[in-house]
Nucleic acid binder design. Structure first.
Lengths: 193, 193
DNA sequence: AATTTACAGACGACCGGTCATATAGTGCAA
DNA sequence: TTGCACTATATGACCGGTCGTCTGTAAATT
């Protein structure tokens, strides 16, 4: 990775931290470069606009998460539905200690979908990808008999992924992990018995 | 209702429309007064700050929704779980035609919870209220035998309300009602058989 | 020497909020 | 009913500050 790309990633990582808690409109270019300890003028060497930064940020976050999820999801030593639980939990870093920020992609979705089409489309794609991963896992669980819910894996995956995103959102309001526990407690009853 | 209160409500209604699509930080005082066709100086006659406006806006939206929900929820001629479905659907106005805006309270939650404690607490309270309504309905359904899921009404209500909020969020990303349909299709399988 | 990258400073626009002034509304005495 | 003092509302110019972006030039790299 070139020196330029390293610095770009560094700027992204620092900026994501700010934008995850303050949102798109609540984060200024100044905030981003301050967090990265980089002069303001340099910002436009790496990103052609604030929107461009946000799009790259969504890419980076989603890529990190998907990489992490993939390694967990393909471990055939663990039952599919147990992996699903892990999958959800892995999508929020340090969900017990640091309840700030929530899901960066979910945040962008709520704040920007109605005002920035490029961000909306990128977010939609990322969510579609993650939903597909859930669906594959559900299919696997159906094969081995641990999933008995008659609703199609496709619909159920949509439902569960969205439910999880809603749970992360609720965590932002409560600032505690209680909603997460309610989710995990309820999950088995949805798989059927 | 006094003349003053009428104008305040008018300003609120016009402003909520803007803020529901552009968010808190994406909406300026100028945007609000423009939407209401009122001079900027007048804003501060009715609200002491932008934050004050947002808090009043959340109140108004939640009050409207709760009033609407209450009338639907208490209709004993309809089965509890059917009412629950109506309850969810009533919380989003014109969910098929106008997918813009989504859930105002959900939007505020995601955007502001980490940066404005007053808004966060207000949002938390509203969500708690709505969850309680779901819980009551689930209890009623359990009485008449239509709800067989062994998970407590409390946990299940939390789960379902958050799932619904997540579904509304997903609708913002897709700009179509498909996620809503997936939610409604999946719902019966959660009640048990 | 030529090209790319780094960055300070400045740009006009707009932000949330204030204020002096103008106007409208109210209660009361005559 | 009228005239008057007083309070409440109306209003847009204006405040200091920050916004996202751009430009000119210095430094680094090729």
């Amino acid at each position: 990775m070139s020196k330029r790309e390293l610095k770009k990633d560094f700027l992204l990582e620092a900026g994501i931290k700010v934008m995850a808690t303050c949102g798109y409109n609540g984060t200024s270019i100044q905030d981003i470069v301050d967090a990265a300890k980089v002069p303001k003028g340099s910002f436009y060497t790496y990103f052609k606009s604030k929107e461009d930064f946000a799009l790259a940020a969504i890419d980076m976050v989603a890529e990190d998460r998907i990489k992490l999820s993939k390694s967990l999801l393909n471990d055939r030593n663990i039952a599919p539905l147990a992996r699903l639980k892990t999958f959800f939990e892995s999508s929020i870093p340090g969900c017990d200690s640091n309840v700030n920020g929530g899901c960066f992609i979910g945040n962008m979705c709520q704040e920007m979908s109605d005002s920035n089409e490029a961000i909306r489309l990128k977010v939609r794609q990322m969510m579609r990808n993650k939903t597909q991963m859930v669906e594959d896992l559900l299919d696997e669980a159906r094969m081995d008999g641990s999933l008995k819910n008659p609703v199609s894996s496709n619909l159920l995956a949509e439902f569960l992924f969205n439910a999880w995103e809603g749970t992360l959102m609720r965590m932002k309001a409560t600032k505690c992990r209680e909603p997460l526990d309610a989710f995990v407690s309820t999950l088995p009853s949805i798989f059927g018995n």
